[in-house]
Each structure stands twice: as C-alpha cells, then as structure tokens.
Computed example of a mutant assay.
Amino acid sequence: MEGFSDCLLTGLLVALASVPVVTAAPAFAAGCRALDRARHGIGRPLWTTFWADFRQAVRGGAAFGLLGLFAAVLFAVDLAVVGAMPGAGVLRPALWVLAAAVAVVAVRTCEVVATGEPAWRRAVVTAVRETAAAPGSAVLLAGAAGLAVVLVWMLPILALLVAGPLALAAVATGGQR
C-alpha cells in the first residue's frame, strides 16, 4: 500500500511543480527520481527528497521543458495542416505515431536524468539509444503514456495524479545503467 500512496503523492508533487509549464520536465524527472528512491527504500520522506531533486533537475531541464512545449504546439499546428490536405487519411496516423515516439523519448529522457545522467543533452542521446535498443519497453511506456492521456481525457481531475503512475512506469521500464 505504501507504493501506491507514494505514486499518488508523486503525481500531486509533479502537478504542483509543473504549474509554470516550462518546469514540467524537471518536475517529472524529480518524480521519477523520488519513486526510484522510494522503490529501493532510500530517501524518506518523499516530499523533501522530491523538492531537492526538483531544484537539481530544473537547472538544465527548463530549456528541455520549453522545447517540449514548442514541440507540442508544432504538433497541434501540423495536425491542423494535415487535416486540410488531400492525404489526411494516411498522414494523420503517421503524425500520431511520430508524436508517440517523441513522447516516449521525452519521458525516457526524464527517467535517464532521474536515474543517472545529470546533463539533459546527453540524457536525450541515451534515451534515444535505449528506446531503439529496447522496443518492447518503449511500447510499454507508450501504452502507459497513452493510458494516462485517456484517463485525463475521461476525468480531467486525474491530471493531478497521473504523473505519478507514469513516472513509475518510466522507472520500471528504464534501462540498467
């Protein structure tokens, strides 16, 4: 039962730290780190270790968060443009698959920062390598992210909690460094 409460508390802490949208990636990385520590029984209490990890991750992670925000806006624009094109039936699913791959790499990057690589640029390279090397775990992580999106779509208040289980999925499917 302790793991479930840690997951929900982490989701709330990530949501709180993500209020300035640019800090969403460092907040998620701190959530991954806090859940990784809680899973191994080190670093109690969770909320104090979360804030210490968040302060450390926000140094380079704010730029990564800004880039993620830019990518989301670009995806929305591309989706609108593709909808007006003649080949929308083929292009729209391809765009969604590309967006899912980018989302998996972004989540994996936060997990890599949380579990070993403090530099965000090197973490992106490591995340791409791990995603390509283990497509099974990438599919599991994509499924977890997709489920998180569906849950928030069905019940928007779950946006306050869903980052915790997603962070746990990222840590559980992460590579061994």
Rank of each mutant, 00 (worst) to 15 (best):
L35E: 05
V112N: 00
Q56W: 09
L161T: 12
T109P: 06
F75E: 10
A101N: 13
C110T: 09
L46F: 07
L141E: 03
G136K: 01
D6K: 10
P118M: 00
L9W: 03
R37F: 06
G89F: 03
L140W: 10
P20W: 00
V112P: 02
V150R: 03
R108I: 08
T173P: 04
L69H: 05
V73D: 05
A114P: 02
V162I: 09
A38S: 09
L8G: 10
L158M: 03
C32K: 05
V97W: 11
F50D: 00
C32A: 14
R37S: 02
V82Q: 10
G143T: 06
A101C: 15
G87Q: 11
L12S: 02
A29L: 01
M1D: 02
R122Y: 04
L141A: 04
D6L: 01
R177E: 11
C110Y: 07
F28P: 14
P45M: 00
A138D: 04
L160M: 05
A24W: 09
R33F: 00
A134D: 15
R108K: 13
V124N: 06
C7T: 14
W153R: 10
V105P: 07
G174N: 14
L158W: 00
V112Y: 07
V102N: 11
V14T: 04
Q56G: 09
L140V: 14
